[in-house]
């Protein structure tokens, strides 16, 4: 299986390539991609350097143009598709049907991957995108259990890529508007979730509170680790109890099921985290490179190395990780 690593900057891309990524995915520095954060992503010159660096070392570059353009932004999104094609990248990662149609017609030789933001979870959905836009690969939403991934992979009309490690979206990607309900900006429209500009931290005595556009997301005691106030990971009140009503702050880690994913025919493992530092990208890419190599060499004997797991654990959200939906009881 290939390792697909994230990069939000040129140093991060170099870290991914140097530590064994087969492909690196990047975005342009605007709302055409789902990690539209200040100071992140690539302008033309940096993207050109990124492609040159990766290609010189045998790695591929994918460009995510995976938000949903509206009429007033349409030409900017199509210009991004044209720019990526002109840069000679190896694939585009897209979700919007109109934009896929544009790319398939304007750049028929440029491989298209279906973004997780399109939330295709069945062979029928995959066929829609393959028949019309000739997509080569689809990234699966983090909602399917391992048996469901296996069933989907059996006879899938395109290559499948699954998330291996990183922040966990508990909602079906591309169909969650919690963020725009509270802040006005969502992954689909603006490429952001729970945007930093809506975050406010408050101290009250020993207590630290996080708010998103005024809505209290969580409160932390002096001994608690205060995480970023992502909407679905706050502590809320349901039936008189306060708890993580939707999801705990935790990371996804699928390393222990790598042999099964490999046997199912999954083509690539994706790491989440274009917003992460080059140091993080280097460490995590290295661990996953080693794990994928070990799994490819002897899947029947594969076991996650304790040192890999502790490295990943140390950089996980809330220092916790989960198999997420891959583990059936979680569903």
């Amino acid at each position: 299986m290939d390792l697909v690593a994230p990069a939000g900057s040129l140093p991060a891309l170099k870290a991914a390539v140097d530590n064994g990524a087969d492909a690196v995915y990047i975005g342009f520095a605007d709302d055409t991609n789902a990690r539209h954060f200040a100071g992140l992503n690539f302008n033309d010159a940096r993207a050109r350097e990124a492609v040159a660096y990766a290609h010189a070392r045998g790695a591929k570059v994918f460009v995510a143009i995976n938000t949903y353009p509206q009429a007033n932004g349409w030409t900017r999104w199509t210009a991004s598709v044209d720019r990526a094609a002109e840069l000679g990248v190896d694939a585009l990662i897209m979700a919007d049907i109109g934009l896929l149609d544009y790319a398939a017609n304007s750049h028929p030789d440029l491989p298209l991957h279906l973004s997780v933001q399109a939330s295709a979870t069945s062979q029928e959905a995959l066929r829609f995108y393959r028949d019309r836009f000739n997509i080569r690969r689809a990234v699966l939403p983090r909602v399917l259990s391992l048996p469901q991934v296996k069933a989907l992979a059996d006879g899938a009309p395109v290559e499948l890529e699954v998330f291996g490690f990183g922040s966990l979206c508990v909602m079906v990607e591309g169909r969650c508007t919690l963020s725009s309900y509270v802040t006005g900006e969502s992954p689909n429209t603006c490429g952001v979730c729970s945007p930093a500009k809506a975050v406010r931290w408050e101290n009250d005595g020993d207590e630290l509170r996080s708010r998103l556009n005024g809505l209290l997301i969580d409160r932390f005691g002096p001994d608690e680790n205060a995480g970023y106030p992502t909407l679905c990971k706050g502590r809320f009140k349901v039936r008189g109890h306060v708890f993580h009503a939707l999801e705990e702050p935790t990371s996804l880690n699928t390393m222990e099921i790598l042999p099964e994913l490999q046997a199912a025919g999954v083509k690539a493992i994706k790491l989440e985290g274009r917003q992460r530092s080059p140091g993080y990208i280097a460490r995590v890419s290295k661990v996953w490179r080693d794990a994928l190599d070990a799994c490819a060499a002897a899947p029947e004997r594969f076991e996650p190395h304790p040192q890999w797991m502790s490295t990943l654990q140390a950089v996980s959200e809330g220092s916790q990780s989960t198999l997420g939906a891959y583990h059936r009881p979680w569903q």
Binding site: Y68, G98, D101
Partner: peptide, 10 residues
């Protein structure tokens, strides 16, 4: 997800 006329047309 239909956010633009090109998607509607497709």
């Amino acid at each position: 997800n239909i956010y633009n006329a090109q998607t509607l047309a497709t």
